[in-house]
Design a protein around this nucleic acid. Structure first.
Lengths: 132, 132
DNA sequence: CGACAGTGCAACTGATGGTTGCACGAAGCC
DNA sequence: GGCTTCGTGCAACCATCAGTTGCACTGTCG
């Protein structure tokens, strides 16, 4: 077991969904089934240009794809790529979860062992001196 | 249904685990059951000072806690807080997953509807003009 | 054709990840 | 005890990036 957790993740993909603004943008795009830089910026606390930059990042990460429609540029989420991202989240999460469980199990085992020891000591003590 | 996904997450916590170096640091801390800035930096492609800064971030996010031991400062992972972080990952992941499933279901429904329409049109066409 | 809406590009600021260099305190060794 | 050495902390500096403002360009509509 090589215990390599962070190795399996695509850093570009992760950093794309790491930004809170970008996550909210993905939310909005999923909710409305698509949108433009201006429509998104109206539901976000940042300017249109900032949104445009984020859309560029998401586009380079393959999470969204753009289609020019008249004078506006419509973006929609790439389902497959977002599914990949979700899989990576789940992967890291479950790996850490497994680690935590293992640590907890070991800690409990140690505690049990110590308790056994204490019990034995108590028994010996009771055998030795029985006065209060 | 308010469809608020990103609202439920703690941005500080998320950005703490958003950095790939910090994720690897958590991995190392979990694997070895603790460590110092110098020991971590030996297994990472960055300098000790960079690691120290990251440890500061993780500390402020509550993901690790330090205990001075002689001339060195030992860090270990806070299990409960990391469990919280894992829960947030799972939360966002499952929310997006649910969205994707819903979209897929709707898309399939639309496709079925269109196919039904086409079938009806085909029937009408066959009824209307039977020449060539 | 002219006005407006939507986009793109460029320059600037602030925060952050990373580096080097140095100073200080605690262990260890003569 | 004094010197070296290891580990830490602090400060200055650089690169990148999120965010802003300002301006120029283009497609639509009256």
């Amino acid at each position: 077991m090589s215990t390599a957790v962070a190795e399996a993740v695509d850093d570009d993909l992760w950093s794309a969904i790491g930004d809170p603004t970008r996550r909210r943008m993905l939310d909005l795009l999923l909710a409305d089934g698509g949108g433009t830089a201006t429509t998104l910026s109206q539901h976000l606390p940042v300017t249109r240009q900032a949104v445009a930059k984020h859309l560029g990042v998401l586009d380079r990460a393959g999470l969204v794809q753009a289609t020019p429609m008249g004078r506006e540029k419509r973006y929609r989420v790439d389902d497959a790529q977002l599914a990949r991202a979700v899989a990576q989240l789940a992967s890291v999460g479950s790996a850490w979860d497994a680690r935590l469980r293992r640590i907890k199990r070991i800690a409990e085992a140690i505690q049990r062992a110590q308790q056994n020891q204490q019990n034995q000591q108590n028994q010996q003590g009771q055998q030795g001196r029985q006065e209060s």
